[in-house]
Amino acid sequence: MSDAERDGLPLPDYDHLPIGGLESRIRSLGAREVEDLLAYERTHADRVPATEVLTARLDQLRSGADPSGGDPGAVRPEQGRGRTGSPVSPATSPQPFSPPPHGTPDQWGKPKGDRT
């Protein structure tokens, strides 16, 4: 399949889509689009998990299931927009409440007592 044909697939960057994201992304596709992806998969990577997911969805559609809403070109979690969460820095880190039992370079550990 040429680049132009690959660009015509119903899911952008299908070749780089992980199996975990495939099942939810094909929910918005019709039977013809799923058939196109299945044919492409079988002639290229032929990944068993991918063909199983596509075949199962195609069977559902042929049995009367309707495509659900969604955008097959939407931002995918696997293409995250960068780092998330709170930044960690010395300014946001809590102050230690006591030194470890072995001490620190500026504060020696305390002896356990007389062990004679």
Rank of each mutant, 00 (worst) to 15 (best):
G109M: 00
G85W: 02
S93R: 15
V88E: 07
R47C: 03
I19L: 08
L58F: 14
S63D: 15
T104K: 04
S89N: 03
P12S: 13
P87L: 13
P96N: 13
P100E: 03
R81E: 09
G64T: 02
G69F: 11
G73Q: 15
S98W: 11
S2E: 11
G21K: 10
G85E: 04
P77Y: 07
P94G: 03
L58N: 05
R27H: 02
E33T: 03
G30W: 06
G8I: 12
L17M: 13
A50L: 02
H102Q: 14
S2H: 08
K110T: 14
D114C: 08
R25C: 01
I26Q: 04
E5F: 07
Q107W: 08
P90V: 08
L11T: 09
H44N: 12
D3L: 05
S93M: 12
G103M: 11
T43Q: 09
R25N: 04
H102S: 11
G21V: 07
T104Y: 00
Q95G: 02
V88L: 13
P105A: 04
L54Q: 04
P101Y: 10
R25Q: 02
E23V: 15
Y14D: 05
S63A: 15
G113H: 09
D36K: 13
K112Q: 06
E35A: 05
Q95E: 14
K110S: 07
A4V: 10
Q107T: 09
T92N: 08
R115S: 03
G70M: 01
I26V: 15
V75E: 15
D13R: 13
R27M: 01
L58K: 02
G69T: 10
A31D: 03
D13P: 00
P18W: 04
